[in-house]
């Protein structure tokens, strides 16, 4: 799981063009959205949905579902591990 978490951090940084950010800047359980965490917003949900589909063959039913899946990198990793098609 630790490897998947780190892999996801790198993919999130790449997908969202977080230029200059490193995986160490993202805490496993920190919220991805809102001022308390990484500061992502609804626009970024679309990028993360594409990330899951392209890299893991996971198609989310709606952006609303993304709110649950993208709570933190750790939650994302858990969801990917359970639902990945590739």
């Amino acid at each position: 799981m630790e490897n998947l978490i780190n892999e996801l951090k790198l993919k999130v940084i790449d997908a969202l063009n977080l230029d200059g950010m490193t995986p160490e800047d993202i805490e496993d359980n920190a919220p991805l959205f809102g001022d308390e965490g990484l500061g992502l917003d609804s626009i970024d949900v679309l990028e993360l949905i594409v990330l899951l589909e392209k890299n893991y063959g996971i198609r989310l039913a709606s952006p609303a579902q993304g709110k649950e899946v993208f709570q933190s990198v750790a939650v994302m990793a858990d969801y990917v591990a359970k639902n990945r098609a590739k």
Binding site: L16, N17, L18, D19, G20, M21, D25, G37, L38, G39, L40, D44
Partner: peptide, 14 residues
């Protein structure tokens, strides 16, 4: 510069 002057505004990276 961000790390020197700010450091706590992750939206910067976006």
């Amino acid at each position: 510069l961000y790390r020197e002057w700010v450091g706590d505004y992750p939206k910067f990276f976006k």
